Lab assay of single mutants.
Amino acid sequence: PAHPYDRLKTTSTDPVSDIDVTRREAYLSSEEFKEKFGMTKEAFYKLPKWKQNKFKMAVQLF
């Protein structure tokens, strides 16, 4: 299930529990994912792991 970005980011005051914290981005809706990352999930997962992590750090999901 998708969760709002505000509850997934590492600085959230009301974090979602029971998620894989190493894959926070996977819980974003497709729309919100595209808004935050500027690309689709499919394109994101084709990137090298280090680049994925760099993007995730930039949007507080790492």
Rank of each mutant, 00 (worst) to 15 (best):
P1C: 15
P1Q: 14
P1V: 14
P1D: 12
A2S: 15
A2R: 14
A2H: 15
A2V: 15
A2D: 11
H3P: 08
H3F: 15
H3W: 15
P4F: 03
P4L: 03
Y5C: 13
Y5R: 01
Y5W: 11
D6E: 05
D6T: 00
D6G: 00
D6Y: 00
D6I: 00
R7M: 09
R7I: 13
R7D: 11
R7C: 15
L8V: 08
L8D: 11
L8T: 03
L8P: 08
K9I: 12
K9H: 10
K9N: 14
K9R: 01
K9W: 10
K9F: 12
K9S: 12
K9L: 09
K9P: 07
K9A: 07
T10L: 12
T10Q: 06
T11Y: 06
T11N: 14
T11P: 06
T11V: 03
S12Y: 07
S12R: 02
S12L: 01
S12I: 04
S12T: 10
T13R: 08
T13M: 11
T13S: 09
T13H: 09
D14F: 06
D14Y: 11
D14A: 02
P15V: 05
P15G: 05
P15M: 04
P15E: 05
P15F: 04
V16I: 12
V16H: 06
S17Q: 15
S17H: 14
S17M: 13
D18H: 10
D18C: 13
I19M: 00
I19H: 03
I19R: 02
I19E: 05
I19C: 09
I19L: 05
D20I: 02
D20L: 02
D20W: 01
D20E: 11
D20N: 08
D20G: 08
V21Y: 10
V21N: 05
V21A: 10
V21H: 09
V21S: 06
T22D: 07
T22L: 06
T22V: 04
T22P: 02
T22S: 13
T22G: 04
R23K: 14
R23F: 07
R23L: 05
R23C: 15
R23N: 06
R24K: 06
R24H: 08
R24Y: 09
R24C: 11
R24M: 09
E25P: 11
E25Q: 01
E25K: 02
A26L: 10
A26Q: 15
A26E: 12
A26K: 10
A26Y: 13
Y27A: 02
Y27E: 09
Y27L: 02
L28Q: 02
L28S: 02
S29C: 08
S29I: 01
S29H: 09
S29W: 04
S30K: 13
S30V: 14
S30E: 15
E31S: 11
E32G: 03
F33M: 01
F33S: 00
F33D: 01
K34D: 08
K34W: 15
K34N: 14
K34R: 14
E35S: 10
E35D: 10
E35M: 11
E35K: 06
E35C: 10
E35Y: 07
K36G: 01
K36Y: 15
K36A: 10
K36N: 10
K36F: 11
F37L: 09
F37C: 12
F37K: 02
F37P: 00
F37G: 00
F37Q: 00
G38P: 01
G38K: 11
M39E: 01
M39H: 01
M39N: 00
M39Q: 03
M39F: 08
M39D: 00
T40W: 06
T40P: 08
T40A: 11
K41C: 05
K41T: 05
E42K: 10
E42D: 14
E42P: 10
E42F: 07
E42A: 10
E42I: 09
E42T: 10
A43T: 13
A43V: 10
F44R: 00
F44E: 00
Y45N: 09
Y45R: 06
Y45K: 03
Y45E: 13
Y45F: 04
K46T: 13
K46Q: 12
K46E: 11
L47K: 01
L47S: 02
L47A: 01
L47R: 00
P48S: 02
P48G: 00
P48R: 04
K49V: 13
K49P: 03
K49T: 11
W50C: 09
K51I: 15
K51V: 14
K51R: 13
Q52L: 01
Q52A: 04
N53G: 04
N53V: 12
N53C: 12
N53D: 15
K54I: 10
K54H: 13
F55D: 02
F55H: 14
F55S: 08
F55R: 08
F55A: 14
K56N: 02
K56Y: 02
K56I: 04
K56H: 06
K56S: 02
M57T: 06
M57D: 10
M57L: 12
A58S: 11
A58C: 09
A58E: 14
A58Y: 11
A58I: 10
A58V: 09
V59P: 05
V59F: 10
V59Q: 08
Q60S: 08
Q60I: 09
Q60C: 15
Q60A: 11
Q60D: 15
Q60G: 12
L61N: 06
F62R: 09
F62K: 12
F62I: 13
